[in-house]
Design a protein around this nucleic acid. Structure first.
Length: 111
DNA sequence: AACATGACGTATT
DNA sequence: TAATACGCCATGT
């Protein structure tokens, strides 16, 4: 299963390409990594990412902008903390994205 | 092989 | 916006 490793590497790379202050959903990351319909697997890949890979995992949220970890959990707080350190606005465990901003991202990331 | 799980997504109400 | 339901798919048991 060396191919699995390659796919994970691609996922990490895609996440590393998310600029500070921006976010992407698991599904988006999956598509950009050439793994359509594999959002859940992206989560597995992130969980497996070693700290040495320097993957900004906190910039990945559910499709609606919510932090995927259970509210109140340590990791949920940690993600919110890092997100805010990036300059993102987090309210009720959700990253606020203005429509224009979201559209710009879609444009910047297409293909 | 069958079934449960999960850092998910989408449609519907 | 929130709650539900169902779809999806790699993994682990």
């Amino acid at each position: 299963m060396e191919d699995r490793r390659a796919a994970m590497t691609r996922v990490w790379q895609v996440v590393r390409a998310i600029p500070r202050g921006a976010t992407a959903s698991y599904g988006e990351v999956a598509r950009r990594a050439g793994l359509p319909r594999r959002a859940r697997w992206v989560a597995v890949a992130l969980k497996a990412a070693p700290a040495s890979a320097r993957v900004p995992w906190h910039r990945v949220t559910a499709a609606d902008g919510r932090i995927a970890f259970p509210a109140g959990s340590r990791q949920h707080r940690e993600q919110a903390r890092r997100l805010r350190a990036d300059g993102c606005v987090v309210v009720n465990g959700r990253v606020i994205r203005r429509k224009a901003e979201a559209d710009l991202d879609a444009w910047l990331w297409r293909r």
